[in-house]
Simulated scan of single mutants.
Amino acid sequence: MRRAFVSHSSADDRYVAEMESFLRNAAGFDEVFNDVSAIQPDEKFWTRIEEGITNCDSFVVVITAASSASEWVKREVEYARSLPRKVIPLWVEDCPRPPIFADRDVIDFRPRTRELLRTDISRVFKYAPAELIGRDDEKKLISDAWAKTLRAEVGRSTVLTFVALGGEGKTSLVAKWAVDEMLAKGWPGCDAAFAWSFHSQGTREQQAASSDLFLKEALTFFGDDADKAFAASPVGAFEKGQRLARLVGQR
Score class of each variant (00 low, 15 high):
Arg156Trp: 07
Tyr15Val: 13
Gln206Ser: 11
Thr149Arg: 06
Ala66Pro: 03
Ile100Ala: 07
Trp187Val: 00
Arg97Asn: 14
Gly166Asp: 14
Pro111Thr: 02
Trp72Tyr: 10
Leu244Pro: 03
Ser7His: 03
Arg110Lys: 11
Ser200His: 11
Ser58Trp: 12
Leu215Ala: 01
Val179Glu: 05
Ala65Pro: 11
Arg110Met: 06
Asp180Gly: 02
Arg97Phe: 08
Asp103Cys: 07
Glu18Cys: 14
Ala17Ile: 05
Asp30Asn: 09
Leu141Ile: 11
Pro188Asp: 01
Thr158Tyr: 03
Glu20Thr: 10
Phe222Gly: 00
Trp146Leu: 08
Val77Gly: 00
Val163Met: 10
Leu165Ala: 14
Arg251Glu: 01
Thr47Arg: 04
Gln207Val: 08
Ala209Gly: 06
Leu132Arg: 10
Ser122Lys: 08
Glu153Ile: 10
Gly166Ala: 15
Lys176Gln: 12
Pro111Phe: 01
Phe238Thr: 13
Ser211Met: 13
Ala229His: 03
Arg151Phe: 07
Glu50Tyr: 15
Leu141Cys: 11
Leu215Ile: 08
Ala245Thr: 11
Asp137Asn: 07
Pro41Cys: 04
Ser37Gln: 15
Leu83Arg: 15
Pro234His: 08
Ala69Asn: 14
Thr113Leu: 07
Phe101His: 03
Tyr79Phe: 14
Ile121Thr: 10
Glu239His: 04
Val154Ile: 15
Arg156Glu: 13
His199Met: 08
Phe109Tyr: 14
Ile39Lys: 09
Arg114His: 02
Arg243Gln: 07
Gly249Trp: 03
Gly169Asn: 10
Trp196Asp: 12
Leu132Asn: 06
Ala26Ser: 14
Val179Trp: 01
Leu83His: 12
Phe222Ile: 00
Glu217Gln: 13
Pro89Gly: 00
Glu71His: 11
Ser21Asn: 11
Gly28Met: 07
Gly166Ser: 15
Phe5Leu: 05
Phe214Glu: 06
Arg2Tyr: 15
Phe29Pro: 00
Asp94Val: 12
Ala17Met: 11
His199Gly: 01
Pro111Ile: 07
Ala11Asn: 12
Tyr127Leu: 15
Arg75Gly: 05
Arg24Gln: 04
Trp91Thr: 00
Trp177Arg: 04
Gln206Met: 08
Arg2Ile: 14
Ala229Ser: 03
Ser70Asn: 06
Lys170Trp: 11
Ser210Lys: 13
Val62Glu: 01
Glu78His: 09
Leu247Tyr: 07
Phe59Val: 02
Asp225Ala: 14
Asp137Phe: 05
Gly186Ile: 02
Glu239Ala: 07
Glu18Lys: 15
Asp108Trp: 05
Leu141Lys: 12
Pro111Val: 02
Ala145Leu: 07
Met19Gly: 02
Asp103Lys: 06
Gly28Trp: 04
Trp72Pro: 05
Arg135Gly: 05
Lys216Pro: 05
Met1Asn: 11
Pro84Phe: 01
Glu217Asp: 15
Gln250Arg: 14
Ala229Asp: 15
Phe125Ile: 13
Pro129Arg: 06
Ser58Arg: 13
Val106Gln: 02
Ile39Cys: 03
Thr47Ala: 10
Val163Phe: 07
Leu141Gly: 10
Phe198Pro: 10
Phe230Lys: 06
Glu168Trp: 09
Ile63Val: 15
Phe59Met: 07
Pro99Lys: 11
Arg75Leu: 13
Val159Ile: 09
Phe238His: 12
Glu239Ile: 02
Phe22Cys: 14
Ala27Ser: 12
Phe109Gln: 12
